[in-house]
């Protein structure tokens, strides 16, 4: 009898654990706005979370890409520049881990924005991507005007600024930002930190589960 109880409680415990992992959901990041609207005479309140706005940038193949290219995908975005002497190499090394893990998987892509709009022309980005080991279009490297790039950095909650006093001439944070199908931010990870990179890899799996058919 005792054994029976033990076995059944173990079994229940297992179910609880597996249910928990199924229900696990990443939060939506950013300040929500409460919007009320009238529908059929009833007041409805919605919480609206900030979204990444539409964009268009020139990529490493000198082709324009836009937010449409990321529709029905999740993606990881970050900000870097090719001759960055400080945090970028570590951040790109860590993002490369994710790229290699999901290479060929069209549910996910990667988007690196260069914040050096002067030097990082498409040909420079192309050479950088090649040498980093990126050989398909799943990881895009883009450039744009200063206003466009720095503007969208704000939307990704990444700090980026031209600053002649820091090494390389640009100051920025090394976040890897996880975006869902609705263009909501679902996670932000310090790309220079190994533990947070591992957390991102776990969270990508959790987010992919949301779109499992």
């Amino acid at each position: 009898m005792k054994i029976n109880i033990l076995v059944s409680s173990l079994f229940l415990g297992l179910i609880a654990v597996s249910c928990q992992s199924k229900d696990q959901k990443l939060p939506i990041i950013g300040e929500k706005e409460i919007i009320t609207r009238q529908e059929n005479g009833v007041t409805i309140t919605d919480s609206v979370y900030p979204k990444i706005p539409s964009f268009q940038f020139l990529n490493q193949d000198s082709t324009y890409i836009s937010d449409k290219d990321f529709d029905n995908k999740i993606y990881v975005a970050n900000f870097f520049f090719t001759h960055c002497p400080s945090i970028c190499p570590t951040m790109q090394r860590n993002l490369l881990q994710a790229y290699e893990k999901y290479k060929g998987d069209d549910r996910i892509s990667f988007l690196s924005h260069s914040i050096d709009f002067k030097y990082d022309q498409p040909s420079v980005l192309k050479s950088y991507a090649d040498r980093l080991g990126v050989d398909n279009n799943q990881w895009q490297f883009v450039t744009g005007s200063k206003a466009e790039i720095y503007g969208i950095a704000d939307n990704y909650l990444v700090y980026a600024k031209e600053d002649s006093t820091v090494a390389g001439g640009y100051d920025h944070t090394g976040y890897l930002v996880l975006i869902d199908h609705e263009k909501h931010i679902r996670g932000a990870y310090d790309g220079t930190n190994d533990e947070q990179t591992q957390q991102m890899l776990k969270d990508i799996e959790i987010l992919l589960q949301e779109y499992k058919k």
Binding site: S86, I87, P89, T90, Q92, L96, R131, L132, G133
Partner: peptide, 16 residues
């Protein structure tokens, strides 16, 4: 040095 050359001295792709 580690930023570019890595914690195990492995470098990064064909960049470093």
């Amino acid at each position: 040095c580690q930023n570019c050359h890595g914690s195990k001295g492995e470098g990064l792709g064909k960049l470093y």
